[in-house]
């Protein structure tokens, strides 16, 4: 069964009288345990597709099924609930809450889900991304690579079925970028968590098991490695 199923998705942005077609009739299925990369030039629709998979946005037309539930029929709060238990996010700009420590950033999705007795799980996740010694540090006390590893741990905190990563290595040097990708690949293999990336970084693409190529809002190639 698919984790995510997008059917005939169209997304049109309207600014004033100008309409921009970001996606034009896209169909995409994401199965369990996938490690998929969305590639394509800037403006091809990668980020828009990722936002629709993450239920952050609604399509102009088409259907988005996440774990069997139709996100296009949900209101904002219902989509927030769906995200909370199902989807984790990793952003290009690290996107940690600056006032919280690494530990608290990872803990936050668990608190939002109302989970209790989560201390050992938080430490386990920080350990898994090799950053447990920075648990008490705030984002401004960590390097970019360390922050992105905390972001990976946070994405895993709600035990999601699907993790979406938008350019996760764009702000990292080669060494840190490869370390982060190694961690994600390892987690994918050990926990079976599905990962979908939007990137044009070859370092990410080389880790992918499936590569979906977009151009002008359409999928032009979908190949398994």
């Amino acid at each position: 069964m698919e984790i995510a199923k997008l059917t005939n998705i169209t997304r049109v942005y309207t600014v004033g009288e100008v309409e921009t077609h970001a996606l034009r009739g896209v169909d995409l299925n994401i199965g369990k345990k996938e490690f998929t990369t969305l590639v394509g030039p800037s403006g091809s629709g990668k980020t828009t597709l990722l936002q629709l998979l993450g239920c952050l946005d609604q399509p102009t037309a088409g259907k988005v099924l996440i774990n069997g539930q139709d996100a296009t029929l949900m209101n904002r709060n219902q989509r927030a609930d769906l995200r909370k238990g199902t989807i984790g996010f990793i952003f290009q700009f690290y996107a940690l809450v600056p006032t919280l420590t690494a530990y608290e950033n990872v803990e936050l999705p668990m608190l939002l889900m109302g989970k209790k007795n989560h201390k050992s799980r938080v430490m386990e996740l920080l350990d898994a991304v090799g950053i447990s010694d920075r648990a008490d540090h705030r984002p401004d006390q960590m390097s970019g690579g360390q922050q992105q590893r905390v972001a990976v741990a946070r994405a895993l905190a709600s035990d999601p079925l699907l993790i979406l990563a938008d350019e996760p290595t764009a702000n990292l040097d080669t060494e840190n970028g490869e370390q982060v990708m190694d961690i994600m690949r390892k987690l994918n293999e050990e926990t079976g968590t599905t990962f979908v990336f939007a990137t044009h970084d070859p370092r990410v693409i080389k880790y992918a098991k499936r590569i979906v190529t977009l151009e002008d809002g359409k999928i032009i190639k979908d190949e398994a490695k």
Binding site: R76, N77, A80, R83, F89, P109
Partner: peptide
């Protein structure tokens, strides 16, 4: 603003 977006992506509801 962006932080609100992150919190929303993590599942924080409007009332929270």
């Amino acid at each position: 603003t962006r932080e609100m977006g992150i919190l929303g992506a993590l599942g924080m509801k409007a009332r929270q």
